[in-house]
Amino acid sequence: MHNGPGPEKLEQGMPNGHQQPVSPLKRVLLRTLPELEGELAGVMNVFDPWARDRGKYYSTEWEPRRGAEGDSAFAK
């Protein structure tokens, strides 16, 4: 999958257990809104709430990722 201008870019590490290209929308966001780079660093799927913990594989739980524990959206 060609995921944007220039050479293919891959996510760091092995999210979901394998190498994964940076998704096209994430690349668009990084290009146009570079100030969100830190926020998007751990986000593989930008359609998935960014502060949600995906777990080791792909948890569907509504739990905060590390660093977002104080987010009131996760308050129970």
Binding site: L29, T32, L33, E35, L36, E39, V43, V46, P49, W50, A51, R52, W62, D71, A73
Partner: peptide, 14 residues
């Protein structure tokens, strides 16, 4: 600002 809207919508639960 677009970045704030993107951040807000990106983090909000459906």
């Amino acid at each position: 600002g677009l970045a704030n809207w993107a951040l807000s919508m990106g983090r909000q639960q459906a």
